[in-house]
Amino acid sequence: MEPILSTHGLTAHYGDFQALFGVDIDVRQGETIAIIGANGAGKSTLMRAITGLLQNAPDAITLRGEGIGALSAPEVLERGISMVPEGRRLFPSLSVEENLLIGGHTRTGNGVWNLETVYEIVPILKERRDHPGTALSGGQQQMVAIGRALMSNPDVLLCDELSLGLAPVVIKEIYASFPKIKERGASVVVVEQDIGQAMKIADRVYCMMEGRVTLQGRPDELSREDIHNAYFGVAS
């Protein structure tokens, strides 16, 4: 099957510092991809590049064959990629409901996701709809951020470090909602430091280190040792 989203030798720089060195990943329709790696491996940079927060060569990133590497964040969103950013980035001046609504500000797509369906998978948000988004607990805020990203009915949903700073129980709850998200058709890319969690939900895994992909494959094909080496860079 043709991949829906691909990167081709993707590079990225912050000033003089090079953060990505020729990264190739493929995401197919309906697939869930986990990208794992230590801090500073370039995972978040990869996410920022795909969503247009970092500019790139047009053909370094393709969506259904179209080069989107040089597009701005709004243009990328319009084409069907949305992101749950690292640190959630909820808008403090907006209520929970407004935070969700703004996810569908410019694109609502044609899919199942709207206020009702988001509230269905996370009923607590409906109760708290008029609270400021940032007044919720960390896990609930993360669910708002996920809901917000779903509101545009993306073809590809990127999730950057969902479990960062959350308790294990809460992380479990968040990932419990993933089957429902997947069953409605979107491809999902999660960036995770929690390897166990990533292995559980992913169809395929990419491991990154120092700006390069060091390992890829299906979770059941990969041994602990492979992952350990790819993650920490122990010579094999």
């Binding site: 969503t51 247009g52 927060l53 701005s72 964040a73 709004p74 969103l77 319009e78 949305s82 992101m83 950013p85 980035r89 808008f91 703004i102 996810g103 500000h105 410019t106 694109r107 917000r148 990203a149 545009s152």
Partner: peptide, 8 residues
């Protein structure tokens, strides 16, 4: 920056 991700 984050509003860019909302298409704004």
């Amino acid at each position: 920056e984050a509003v860019g991700l909302m298409g704004i």
